[in-house]
Amino acid sequence: MSDTEHHVCPVGLYLAIFGALMVFTLLTVGAAYLNMGVMNNVVMLGIAIVKAALVISIFMHLKYNPKILWVVAIGAFVWLGIMLALTLSDVMSRGWIPNQPASWL
């Protein structure tokens, strides 16, 4: 186990990940100047998620770590997703009921 957990990555891999992160940064800035409506948010968050995945898997060595850490890392984002989904499903659906009191909004 210790040779997987303390895996030494080649410098080139780190440089490649850095390069990829720079390319994605350029892409997200470029995309921000195009008017794509709701797709702007999808592209922006999609690129950010890919960048975060690269940082987590390589820079943070999660790829080389025991699976128990994957459970914690993925679990953290699942809980975040639950918080966002429940909150936004409330907020976004408030206008759906007709004739509701103003205090609900």
Binding site: T28, V29, A32, Y33, L34, N35, M36, N40, N41, M44, L45, I47, A48, K51, A52, V55, I56, F59, M60
Partner: peptide, 20 residues
């Protein structure tokens, strides 16, 4: 790296949403 990831999300959400 975690602090870096937070910025990866903060940057587009704060700086880039009014550009187009």
């Amino acid at each position: 790296h975690f602090v870096d990831i937070v910025w990866i999300f903060l940057f587009p959400l704060l700086y880039l949403i009014g550009r187009h």
